[in-house]
């Protein structure tokens, strides 16, 4: 599964668990307007680390603002 597909399915899974209404995941969607809170993002990042084996926030220059930024942060780390 691609990073994008893994990330998308985890956003959906965590939104269900946290009973939050997730906005459609387009690349220009701002993360803080996605319907998820900080705790949800913390859960997504931890589960991505379990699945992919890395946490790109350790070395990131800046925090992702949009969903597209978030996906690119993971894609650029895996290359």
């Amino acid at each position: 599964m691609s990073e994008r597909a893994t990330i998308t399915s985890l956003f959906e899974q965590v939104a269900r668990e946290q009973q939050r209404k997730l906005s459609p995941l387009s690349d220009d969607l701002r993360l803080l307007e996605s319907g998820l809170d900080s705790l949800s993002f913390a859960l997504i990042v931890a589960r991505l680390e379990d699945k992919l084996g890395y946490d790109p926030f350790d070395t990131a220059e800046s925090f992702p603002v949009t969903f597209g930024d978030f996906v690119r942060l993971y894609e650029s780390h895996s290359r």
């Binding site: 701002r30 803080l32 900080s38």
Partner: peptide, 11 residues
Amino acid sequence: PSHWRRALMSG
């Protein structure tokens, strides 16, 4: 720090 990470993520 969590407030600030959120502020940075807000753009």
